[in-house]
């Protein structure tokens, strides 16, 4: 599904600040991978570089989605190709109804893929069903995108967008940050409901607790722009107990 090979990236401003330093990763269809790592290890940068945000320059390496070069595409083309990023800090768009936003996004992607757009009726039916599963009520669908949403509401809204857009490759960037236990359960249930043989996940997190809810197949530890260790779910538990220091020392040795 997603194949990242020796990826190097640096900030466009402050040139010379290298953030990704030879990162490689392969995610097969249907797999859930988790990336853990200390602050400043480049986890969020990885999600931005993959989704095409301005401000980063890829100096070396490649990233492909189902064999197609991601790095050559505009952000909206990557989205239409099936890449979805659940933002760590979902953005507020005043005056734009959540429904309007969702429908514009869904139809933009369908159009880009040469599919027929959803009619208002069909769209409404699907949204209602999916919103209900995430305990998002009609009122929240009407409100402007993320404006005045609580932390939990914002993250549930991200998952609703994901459910509506039905991406192939989902990146969750610290989706657990700012969530209480109940909200984390709700969000995790939403994600688990979307797990499917044709859909892969890359879950970026600081803490092991999210991985109790979203069980990963593979866990990577990232430090200083590279993957320093890869293992099964037990690796996350090890981090939880001992912190990153041992692993980092081990990697340098």
């Amino acid at each position: 599904m997603l194949e990242i090979n020796n990826l190097h990236a640096e900030l466009e401003e402050d040139s010379g600040v290298k953030i990704l330093k030879g990162l490689s990763l392969t995610i097969k269809p249907g797999e859930v991978h988790a990336i853990m790592g200390p602050n400043g290890s480049g986890k969020s940068t990885l999600s931005y570089v993959l989704s095409g945000r301005d401000g980063y320059e890829v100096t070396e390496g490649s990233a492909t989605l189902e064999g197609v070069d991601l790095l050559e595409m505009e952000p909206e083309e990557r989205a239409a190709a099936g890449l979805f990023l659940a933002f760590q800090y979902p953005v507020e768009i005043p005056g734009v109804g959540n429904m309007t936003f969702l429908r514009t996004a869904v139809n933009a992607q369908r159009k880009a893929r040469g599919e027929e757009e959803l009619s208002a009726g069909e769209f409404l039916k699907v949204v209602r069903a999916k919103a209900k599963e995430l305990q998002i009520d009609a009122e929240m669908l009407k409100r402007p995108v993320n404006v005045g949403f609580s932390g939990g509401e914002k993250k549930r809204n991200e998952i609703l967008q994901m459910a509506m857009l039905e991406p192939k490759m989902c990146i969750l960037d610290e989706t657990d940050s700012g969530l209480d236990v109940d909200a984390m359960k709700l969000v995790s249930d939403g994600v688990n409901a979307l797990r499917d043989a044709g859909r892969s996940f890359l879950v970026i997190t600081h803490y092991q607790r999210l991985l109790n809810h979203i069980q990963p197949d593979v866990v990577h530890i990232m430090s200083e722009g590279r993957i320093i260790k890869t293992g099964g779910p037990e690796l996350a538990l090890e981090v939880e107990e001992n912190g990153y220091a041992d692993l980092m020392a081990e990697a340098q040795a």
């Binding site: 945000r53 909206e76 989205a79 979805f84 953005v91 507020e92 936003f101 933009a108 992607q109």
Partner: peptide
């Protein structure tokens, strides 16, 4: 805001 919209598929 623009990046958020574009990541969701809008040009």
């Amino acid at each position: 805001q623009l990046f958020y919209c574009r990541q969701r598929g809008m040009d």
